[in-house]
Design a protein around this nucleic acid. Structure first.
Lengths: 138, 138
DNA sequence: TCTAGTTGTAAGCATGATTATTACAACAAG
DNA sequence: CTTGTTGTAATAATCATGCTTACAACTAGA
């Protein structure tokens, strides 16, 4: 099991917007050319990034721009904007409550898995768009 | 996106085997009763745990038993036994190599996401079956 | 006002993963 | 030989993902 490619796609889009700011009009078609995906995928992704307050979109005329500085956009913001991320883990639905293991499995596991979730979030929070831009150049 | 329920199912199975050792014959049907899933799911899961060297299965006669002590079985062993876990993340397939962002996106992201993967693995390695058994009682 | 390019979304489709279920050959113990 | 079990294949239902077509609504400029 893996995450969808939505977060990488969103990051790619944001990096393009930052990189081509002022040089090109970053329309969905233009961006789709760099991504190698359908323009509608770009529009849907941009729509979620807009809802998360990360970008502004010029309706009608076309083009998108960042609403925050690249150093103030974390990968977690991007991730949670495009991915319906509740928990990384899922349980089987109907453990038997009459069995001591079935009764406790959810709570017992959750105690540990929650911290995996938390660490995952913290790590993504510590990666900002600017550091990705920096590595792009090198 | 989430992981499948395979790891929680496998953990549940292993906990039952440890808990009911000597008291009940842990057949796939018996285990399925505690899990609330189909016995075939249990057999397929046990088959993967066996391939990973974690359990022994009595063919024909029925029943499974642990091959390692609960304190020596980590959640990572269980996870990687049942989940085809390469990387947590996936990329879009065809970024444009003529675009500086498209050319670099994979490598630039991978540099950071790899450490998320590593941390994920380390955390699961630090959780053992015995500690889950302990919390079960309380 | 008209035109051209764009966004926002809905709808449909193909594919693959997940889970449940049926079925049955192979096996072991009594 | 019978009974209960494992191992595994096959099927089906459901859902997520990603691609694509289509089209109304919008904006700027001629």
């Amino acid at each position: 099991m893996q995450f969808s490619s939505r977060m990488p796609i969103a990051v790619h889009i944001l990096l393009c917007i930052a990189e081509f700011d002022g040089k090109y009009k970053t329309t969905s078609t233009f961006l789709a050319g760099s991504l190698g995906v359908n323009p509608v995928i770009v529009r849907n992704t941009l729509s979620k990034l807009k809802a998360a307050g990360l970008v502004r979109i010029e309706s009608g005329v076309g083009g998108a721009s960042l609403l925050k500085k690249p150093e103030d956009i974390s990968l977690w913001e991007v991730f949670s904007a495009v991915e319906d991320a509740h928990s990384l883990f899922r349980y089987h639905d109907n453990p038997n409550p009459q069995c001591p293991v079935g009764r406790g499995i959810h709570k017992v596991l959750d105690k540990h898995l929650q911290s995996v979730n938390d660490t995952f979030k913290e790590q993504l929070q510590n990666i900002c768009l600017q550091s990705l831009l920096d590595s792009l150049g090198s």
